[in-house]
């Protein structure tokens, strides 16, 4: 079977995700998601999602618009708690601990599980303060300058901004702002970084610098990335989850569901599910 999606040649061969994907028995589970159903005002956005997300890998979530990708990833750090009508059922075990369990503080959850958003959202502060804000607020004040520099370096932004750290972050370009948001997220040393379509507003060069970054950083972090862009998923992800909309139920409503979850290479070359194949070959929306 010929796929319409060409998996682009890697710029650096040693970083090919498939080369780094360990066999199943050597994967450490970070998230064990069991029967997750998420509703807004009673209407399910995703139904009965079960999957495991592994440590030091990049996991991509792909699927058509409205299938609940953002909803899913925002469940992983309880970001959806901020939406009043939101309710989640099922379990999300994070290193064995149920994130929705009693006594779990969502602030502590987000402390370990950071997030980068679709639209760059730097604070209206200086470049330096954007990174330093979280560090100060979380009491990581020792060696602040060094931490800021390290985070900016890791986010491949240091060389571009080192002479003008006092400048407002709002004056940076979109791609620079997004890398600043990544720097801000990793400065506080989370375990997991969730990225919700981080490159959708960026040009190909900025996009590829963010992809390179994930390759570099996944030694230290676990990444979950939502993307519309299948080439991007193929390039950066070790594992890929394909979400889609379920057929209309009795009430005529459709909700998001997990169709297939496997090694990226498998998803893009020999998917087990017909719907995945249709989607990755571009026969479906």
């Amino acid at each position: 079977m010929a796929t319409a999606v060409t998996i682009q040649p890697e710029r650096r061969v040693d970083l090919t995700p498939q080369a780094t994907l360990p066999p199943p028995e050597r994967r450490e589970t970070v998230f064990d998601i069991r029967g997750l159903t998420a509703r807004y005002g009673g209407v399910p956005a995703i139904s009965d999602v079960s999957m495991e997300i592994y440590e030091n890998l990049v996991t991509a979530v792909i699927g058509p618009s409205g299938c609940g990708k953002s909803t899913f990833i925002r469940c992983l750090n309880r970001m959806n708690d901020l939406v009043p009508a939101f309710r989640a059922e099922g379990e999300i075990l994070y290193h064995g601990l149920d994130l929705h369990g009693p006594g779990i503080d969502p602030v502590a959850v987000r402390r370990r599980i950071g997030m980068v958003f679709q639209k760059p959202n730097p604070f209206p502060k200086s470049i330096y303060d954007n990174v330093a804000f979280g560090l100060r607020a979380l009491g990581m004040k020792d060696g602040l300058d060094g931490r800021v520099e390290h985070a900016l370096t890791q986010a491949a932004l240091w060389d571009e901004v080192k002479g003008r750290l006092k400048m407002s972050a709002l004056e940076l370009s979109g791609g620079q702002q997004q890398r600043l948001c990544i720097a801000r997220a990793i400065a506080v040393e989370p375990d997991v970084v969730l990225l919700d379509e981080p490159a959708s507003a960026l040009d190909p060069i900025a996009t590829s610098s963010i992809e390179d970054l994930m390759h570099e950083l996944k030694r230290d972090y676990t990444f979950v990335i939502v993307t519309h862009n299948m080439q991007q998923a193929a390039r950066v992800a070790d594992m890929t989850a394909f979400f889609s909309l379920s057929p209309a139920g009795e009430d005529g409503r459709r909700s998001g569901m997990l169709v297939e979850y496997d090694a990226t290479q498998k998803i893009f070359t020999t998917p087990a599910d017909r719907r995945t194949e249709d989607y990755v070959t571009g026969r479906f929306g």
């Binding site: 602030v107 959850v109 987000r110 370990r112 980068v116 958003f117 604070f123 804000f133 979380l138």
Partner: peptide, 9 residues
């Protein structure tokens, strides 16, 4: 959200 996602109260 940018701030809350850092684990800031």
């Amino acid at each position: 959200e940018g701030s809350l996602a850092l684990g800031v109260s």
